[in-house]
């Protein structure tokens, strides 16, 4: 593994989820997934709902579900600002499934083209994302 490291921070409004050295960051950019290695050029991009992966030098990876946000790269420093973020390893699949079916059940009773429907759909998308990641990485 390379000697050069990326310093990575994953920050949400509620807490700092991760900070430390990593080898590679793989993030769900709005225009496509991007992998960031040391010596990357300075970049600011928006992220969509998806999975953020942090690769460590021992071959291990952290899988983090994020609910959209931003990513900044500057001089081997990667900052991820996410509305919300959660480790795949800490997710409770049964609970997520429960929430998902609750939302789905409620979806039918919401009038079309309303603000609530938009909100509920977005929420469903966020939960589904978490669930997919949790299932894949368990």
């Amino acid at each position: 593994m390379s000697a050069r490291k990326l310093y990575c921070e994953v920050i949400t409004p509620e807490k700092i989820l991760y900070k430390g050295d990593v080898d590679m960051v793989i993030a769900p950019g709005t225009v496509g997934e991007l992998g960031i290695l040391p010596l990357h050029m300075p970049l600011v991009t928006t992220l969509k709902i998806g999975e953020l992966r942090l690769k460590h030098d021992n071959g291990k990876q952290d899988y983090i579900a994020i609910d959209s946000g931003y990513l900044e790269v500057m001089e081997d420093k990667v900052t991820v600002l996410a509305d919300a973020a959660e480790y795949a390893s800490k997710m409770d699949i049964a609970k997520l499934n429960q929430i998902k079916s609750d939302i789905k059940a409620g979806l039918a009773s919401i009038p079309k083209n309303s603000e609530e429907l938009f909100e509920a759909t977005a929420e469903l998308e966020r939960i589904t994302n978490r669930l997919t990641i949790a299932e894949r990485r368990k």
Binding site: V44, T46, Y70
Partner: peptide, 19 residues
């Protein structure tokens, strides 16, 4: 000038201001 913005600087700003 050294920064790259994706998708574009304007779109990034469009999302950052609400945040």
């Amino acid at each position: 000038g050294e920064y790259t913005f994706e998708p574009s600087d304007k779109e990034v700003l469009d999302r950052l201001l609400p945040t």
